[in-house]
Nucleic acid binder design. Structure first.
Lengths: 343, 343
DNA sequence: GTTAGCACTCGATGAGACCGAGTGCTAACT
DNA sequence: AGTTAGCACTCGGTCTCATCGAGTGCTAAC
């Protein structure tokens, strides 16, 4: 398919796409010749554009408007035409600067990351927090609140904390809680959370535990602690899309904001990129969120050692500046990996 | 000032306000007579309306439109005319139902609370998480991550958890960390966080500690842990205001969304309600957020025992259904207090 | 004090004219 | 055969103008 394009067609397509990225408006044959030093007449360009429309790379909103690149065109652009630049030095420094304010809550770091992504890309930053299941267990602690209520705190190798209040059947003395957490910490050391789950299940069945009330109670509590809440996701900079001319229309905007309220769908989408090597791009309808028409998503996983922790990315209009944003996403993912990674 | 209004003027003002709340459109003299069984002619009503405008209760967008209640009118309405109903049974049940999914992370509960507020009021729900400073210290734990990095976990009496990664000057053995937390837990038991801060300061100066490296290190770590991050705030249902006809205008909408990005200002506003007895209302410009014109805020504090933990509320257009929303905010605050309160 | 009548205001709506960017086609040019 | 100039045509955007109707304020009568 891309072979069927002559060199000249490519050049013109690229010119149109780049124009469209700049202006958000249908591109006419004149502007192509004007803005790019191609020594061709508008009429010739028109012929080529007509062919490109035939091939599905361009669409015309109506007869007398210019033409607009389709999702297919952007896909081609990203795959074949785009030269990903190295990250801008200034931007790199800005990212580093944001991360400087050190020593905070992991959640804070993730939130800051999505703020960074949004403020530097001028689009929407998104970070999916690490799933517990993918993590390695480090420690569990029980803190007694009043009565039968216990605060369980679960810490993973990478320093992610999950805490929840559980209610025991009866009041448990503080010393017992310490013994319980010692027992569990020993038992579960070094396992991934999913291994932890099976381990707890197996241990509960074992004779040794079945008749030891303390242990079995400990296991029950930890079980309650483990069942995973919905993945947390940090989204920042939603206002930025209000600046985009193509969303001046109120109806379209509503759709977008609504899409962001359904975080579940977003998470599903980003989860699909967990195993990607590096940067991953969904263009327009490719993202399968019907509400997110005219939007593209650029993602990259962040890791700790060999372990993929989560995914981050930027959501912007389909006509976003891919060449600028891709390196930002890539670099930010690396920085975050470095900061969270402890190996 | 309210005395200067005759009974009839009041009735008419109320009718206008209620009409405006329903329709979001300027109210004319005819609609007042039509919709309300007042046996008065439009002409009479017009005279009264003219007086009300003189007094600053009404404003006319232009000569031939109807009239719109001013902030002052809404203030008067809320203070003097409004009969706050008891909460609707159905809504009460719905709130309870939302809270049923128990045993979660405190943060989760707060987020759910703001979701509840938004979905039941159909406006925007907002919850400011408890400040640490106002809380009573319960426990501190140190978890060793790799190298010199330590995860410090701070738990308050009410089960709120604050965690952050701190970096020590040198590697500290795990046993020492346990001893350090034991020392601190003993020292700080039962103090409020602000007392904790002074205590740490005093203790650091004491001779006993100055030459005990372990203790002084412990104090240093806890100091790092304590300095408070920005208060967390949960905002849900921002899309809901897109439904409000008065925000169909894109410019106005941008302003609102931008206001929500500056969470600091919102927090300042809500903080002012921390000491309020019960429900507190800011109407229109009263909230002092210049971006939030045409918006009102209804807040209520949530407590644990005598201790005010934080504030929650609903943000909606100035012409919101106060009679419906006030009991929702009030009831939700009570429920949340009950859930978090442990005494 | 209340009401009917009336002239007046002013935004909203819709029709018509016009403009201009852009297209597609044809015929001429290299 | 590919390229270009010329030209008729399309169609959204904008401007103007007339019209409509909800609503007002004023005056005079009840």
């Amino acid at each position: 398919m891309s072979d069927s394009l002559t060199e000249r067609s490519r050049q013109i397509l690229e010119a149109i796409i780049e124009d469209y990225i700049k202006t958000a408006e249908p591109v006419g044959s004149r502007s192509v010749t004007r803005r790019h030093g191609l020594s061709l007449s508008p009429a010739t360009v028109r012929n080529v554009m007509s062919d490109l429309e035939e091939l599905g790379f361009l669409a015309s909103p109506h007869t007398s408007a210019g033409r607009v690149p389709t999702d297919k065109a952007f896909r081609f652009y990203v795959d074949s035409l785009l030269q990903v630049r190295a990250i801008d030095e200034e931007q790199r420094d800005e990212i580093r600067r944001h991360y400087r304010g050190q020593g905070r809550d992991v959640g804070e770091i993730l939130k800051e990351t999505s703020r960074i992504l949004s403020s530097i890309s001028h689009y929407i930053g998104i970070v999916v927090a690490p799933r517990f299941t993918a993590n390695v267990f480090r420690q569990i602690e029980f803190v007694k609140l009043c009565g039968r209520r216990i605060l369980a705190i679960l810490v993973s190798e990478s320093g992610v904390v999950q805490n929840r209040i559980v209610e025991a059947n009866e009041e448990i003395p503080a010393e017992d809680l310490v013994r319980m957490s010692n027992y569990l910490n020993n038992l579960l050391q070094g396992l991934t959370i999913s291994e932890v789950k099976t381990m707890i299940f197996r241990e509960m069945e074992s004779d040794r535990v079945r008749y030891d009330e303390l242990m079995s109670r400990a296991l029950k509590l930890s079980e309650q602690t483990l069942d995973e809440p919905d993945a947390e996701v940090f989204i920042e900079g939603q206002v930025n899309i209000l600046e985009q001319p193509e969303f001046a229309d109120v109806g379209r905007m509503k759709e977008i904001f609504r899409a962001f309220e359904e975080k579940g769908q977003l998470i599903t989408l980003l989860d699909r990129c967990m195993d990607a090597e590096r940067v991953n791009i969904f263009i327009g309808a490719e993202n399968f969120l019907h509400r997110m028409t005219h939007m593209s998503v650029i993602t990259a996983p962040y890791v700790s050692g060999r372990n993929t922790l989560g995914v981050l990315g930027v959501i912007g209009p389909t006509r976003m500046g891919y060449d600028r944003v891709i390196p930002i996403v890539d670099y930010t993912a690396r920085m975050l990996s470095e900061i969270l990674g402890n190996g």
